[in-house]
Design a protein around this nucleic acid. Structure first.
Length: 248
DNA sequence: TGGATTTGACCTCT
DNA sequence: AGAGGTCAAATCCA
């Protein structure tokens, strides 16, 4: 019996050309709707293996009104298919395909043949102000940006996620362990949700949006559930992010 | 040619 | 009645 979950993520695409998000699953678009008050239509996706493996996970993707490079993705349901994060290279994400279609006539944009390694640095956006602010906060743990950069506000945040039967991390693991290695994805959680999860009003006061920078290169992590250290790791604001040797 | 996407119609809920 | 969600035939594309 699938456990139904409902998680909202905000995924940022730096330049609006490259796909902002690859969550390691195959999605099939089954509908699109203009939403009242929204500038952009909402797209509806279901798991490709809905029929073959009775996987009833769905997600809704909608561009943010404020920032068109931000995709608000609502995941509903839990993948029960075996084509998830540990499968072979999945097809392009629906967001990528959507943008691909939008850019079909644009012959001047950067060459896809540059490959993942080349595109990675240009897509990587690091909010250094966010990092600087974070340095003044007592974070229980954070992550190296080359593997999984994640700054959690406090233990309550972590425990609240675990209280949700690990569904939050389940979804993240699908992303983090995606074999579509090389992409740099940004998971931005809206302050409203941060308040819900962490119960920490300080977050909104800081005007910060949680940024979880996930590098899918962590495919072969030996740790299935927690793909990051639990000890504080300081991240230099001027960290060079030299990734040239990582994906070779 | 088969699978994925598009899109108008239909269904459900408030 | 209107909005959101889903269906399914038409269409697209590799």
């Amino acid at each position: 019996m699938a456990k139904w979950t409902d998680h909202v993520m905000r995924v940022s695409s730096e330049n609006g050309i490259e796909g902002p998000h690859e969550d390691g699953h195959s999605w099939r678009k089954y509908g699109q709707k203009d939403i009242l008050g929204a500038k952009h239509p909402r797209s509806y996706y279901r798991c490709t293996y809905r029929n073959t493996q009775s996987c009833y996970a769905t997600k809704q993707v909608q561009r943010s009104d404020e920032d068109p490079t931000i995709f608000e993705i609502t995941y509903k349901g839990k993948h029960t298919c075996s084509h998830g994060s540990n499968s072979v290279l999945p097809p392009p994400s629906p967001e990528q395909q959507e943008q691909k279609r939008n850019k079909q006539n644009n012959t001047s944009h950067q060459q896809q043949s540059q490959g993942i390694q080349m595109s990675f640095p240009t897509n990587l956006r690091v909010d250094t102000k966010f990092l600087e602010d974070r340095e003044n906060m007592a974070s229980p743990f954070s992550f190296t940006s080359t593997s999984f950069g994640c700054m959690m506000p406090d233990d309550a945040f972590l425990s609240s996620m675990l209280d949700d039967n690990n569904t939050f991390f389940d979804n993240f693991n699908h992303s983090l362990l995606s074999p579509a290695a090389g992409e740099s994805n940004y998971y931005l959680m809206p302050p409203s949700q941060m308040r819900n999860i962490a119960g920490n009003e300080q977050l909104s006061e800081c005007g910060l949006t949680e940024i979880i920078s996930a590098n899918n290169s962590s495919t072969n992590s030996p740790i299935p559930e927690m793909d990051f250290p639990l000890e504080p790791v300081e991240i230099e604001p001027n960290f060079p992010f030299d990734t040239t040797g990582i994906f070779s």
